[in-house]
Amino acid sequence: MNQSLVLSILSDDKPGVVETLAKTINDHQGNWLESRLSQLAGKFAGILHISVPEEQLEALQTALRNLQSSRGIQVATAAAAGAENGPGTIVMQFSLMGNDRAGIIREISQAFVSHGINLEELDTSCSSMPWSGTPMFTANGLLRVPDSVDIELLADQLEAIADELGVDFELRETESPVAD
């Protein structure tokens, strides 16, 4: 029987990190299922979902821990949890753009949690506006929204926050369903 694991990785950004992880997983008969990997501020970080035969689990976890001393790759492992999101939710997307300032993510995430909304994905970046050089912050994400949430009330609350922060905010239902 296969075990499902989630790995969190952190390393200096250098060639060979992904290959080293893939080889280690493969050497233990593991299967790389999905991942989100990125270079940020000179570091390479990510999360991976893998499956591994139960009889290889302990050896793989030991090999992954040893990557810290041998290759400078930190790996934390955790058993994958079952899907918590069942019927009674809708998936929505949001996007935000405006002048960068501290507290933007804190403000919108507080609004989400006050409605019992799960933030499933979040991508953010900060760049310079081409015409002025002013720092511009963008955020895009996926939300799992309980059916009980009044979407109009939520949209009004998020628009009020966006006005206060001086950012543009858009909330929309996804065009295609996301699997639970």
Rank of each mutant, 00 (worst) to 15 (best):
I9T: 05
I104F: 03
L122I: 04
L171T: 02
V18W: 04
A79F: 08
N31E: 09
T24R: 03
T20W: 01
T134F: 12
T24D: 07
I117M: 03
G72T: 10
V52N: 00
N99D: 11
P53D: 09
M97C: 15
E58V: 07
T20S: 08
A79K: 15
V178C: 05
I90E: 04
I105S: 02
Q56A: 08
H115M: 13
S132I: 12
L60M: 02
S4T: 15
R144W: 06
I73E: 00
Q29G: 05
S132N: 14
I117D: 00
A111P: 04
A179H: 09
I25Q: 00
S125A: 10
V113F: 07
E120W: 14
D168I: 06
T134A: 13
M97H: 05
N118H: 09
H49R: 09
E120I: 06
E170Y: 14
E84A: 15
M97K: 13
N26Q: 11
F112P: 04
H115K: 08
V149C: 02
H115I: 09
A139D: 11
Q61W: 07
L7W: 05
F112A: 13
A80F: 08
A41I: 10
Q3K: 13
P146G: 11
A22T: 04
V18S: 03
D12H: 09
S69H: 09
V167F: 02
L171N: 01
E152S: 10
M136I: 09
V18H: 03
F137S: 13
L165D: 02
I161R: 07
A81H: 13
F169S: 02
T89P: 03
S114F: 03
A45N: 01
H28M: 04
E159P: 04
G88L: 07
G72A: 09
G86T: 13
S114R: 04
S132F: 14
E120A: 12
A59H: 02
N2Y: 12
F44N: 07
I25V: 14
N99K: 10
S132E: 15
G30E: 01
F169H: 08
V6W: 00
F169W: 10
V6K: 01
R36N: 05
G42P: 09
